[in-house]
Design a protein around this nucleic acid. Structure first.
Length: 103
DNA sequence: CGAGTGACCGCAA
DNA sequence: ATTGCGGCCACTC
């Protein structure tokens, strides 16, 4: 029954990220079942549903993504709106805000 | 159908 | 310490 496309799973995980929380592409990819597909998550994010909270998804360094609609500028602003303190395009409380579904 | 690309990650020199 | 390169999988054209 669990045979949805990788993209479907990524959507589910991202959609489950609560406000004020963030996840890394690698974590999301691992939850989707492909720990080596962090790039795919990024690719899906670019071609995927923009209605999803992609702004809660950051890279392994807790930094903002590059292809985000509006650039890091918009990305940072969106995260700050969620209540995520950012500094120099890097989440200060990244390790504390890092969250995983099922936790 | 085939090929290229990507909002990444990890390691090596 | 920093920089550069490759690898991996799925998606799109």
């Amino acid at each position: 029954m669990n045979d949805p496309k990788f993209r479907e799973r990524v959507y589910a995980v991202v959609a489950q990220i609560p406000p004020g929380r963030i996840m890394t592409y690698g974590d999301i990819a691992a939850m989707a079942g492909q720990a080596h597909a962090a790039r795919i998550v990024g690719g899906i994010a670019h071609f995927g549903s923009i209605e999803l909270p992609w702004h809660r998804v950051v890279n392994r360094f807790g930094g903002l993504a590059s292809g985000y609609p509006g650039g890091k500028r918009g990305h940072q602003k969106d995260l700050e709106t969620e209540g995520v303190p950012i500094k120099d395009f890097i989440i200060t409380d990244f390790e504390e805000r890092r969250w995983t579904p099922g936790l």
